[in-house]
Computed example of a mutant assay.
Amino acid sequence: MQGRVDWARRFDHMQQHTGQHILSQACWQVLRAETVGFHLGDEASTIDLDVAGLDLGALERAEALANEVVFQDRPVRAAFFSEAEVAALPLRKPPAVRGEVRVVQVEGFDSSACGGTHVRRTGEVGPIAIVRVEHRGQESRVHFLCGHRATRDHRQRIRITSVLMAALTVGLGDLPDAVARLQEDLRAARKEAKDLRERVLDAETEALLAAAPQVGEWKVVRHLLPEGEATTLKWMAQRLTARPGVVALLALGGDRGQLAFACSEDIPLDMAALLREVPRAVGGGGGGGPRLAQGGGFAGARAAEALDLAWERLGQVGSSGNPTRRDG
Rank of each mutant, 00 (worst) to 15 (best):
Q2P: 07
H17E: 04
H17T: 11
T18P: 00
L23M: 06
R32C: 06
R32E: 12
E34H: 13
T35D: 10
G37P: 09
H39F: 14
A44H: 14
I47W: 02
L49D: 01
A52I: 07
A52W: 02
L54D: 01
L56T: 10
A58P: 01
R61Q: 13
A64C: 02
A64V: 05
A64D: 10
P75Y: 08
P75S: 10
R77F: 01
A78F: 03
A79P: 02
F80Y: 11
V86F: 05
A87S: 14
L91I: 06
R92Y: 08
V103P: 03
V103D: 05
E107K: 11
G108F: 12
S111K: 00
A113K: 05
C114Y: 00
C114T: 03
G116A: 07
T117I: 08
H118D: 02
T122A: 03
G123T: 04
G126A: 07
R136T: 07
R136F: 07
G137E: 10
Q138N: 14
E139V: 10
S140D: 04
L145F: 12
C146T: 14
C146S: 12
R149M: 06
R149N: 04
D153F: 14
R155P: 04
I158F: 10
I158D: 09
S162V: 01
L164A: 11
L164W: 02
M165G: 00
L172E: 15
G173P: 00
D174Y: 04
D174H: 14
P176T: 04
V179K: 09
R181N: 13
D185W: 12
R187M: 13
K194C: 08
K194A: 15
V200C: 03
L201C: 02
E206L: 13
P213D: 07
Q214C: 11
K219P: 02
L224T: 06
E227L: 11
G228T: 02
K234R: 15
R243I: 08
L249N: 04
L252M: 13
G253S: 09
G254I: 09
A260C: 15
A260K: 02
F261M: 09
S264E: 10
E265K: 15
D266L: 14
I267L: 15
I267D: 03
P268H: 15
M271D: 00
A273K: 14
L274N: 03
G286D: 00
G287A: 12
G287V: 03
G289D: 15
P290C: 08
P290M: 09
R291S: 10
L292I: 12
G297D: 03
G297L: 12
G297Q: 09
A310R: 02
A310L: 07
W311G: 05
Q316G: 12
G321N: 06
R325A: 09
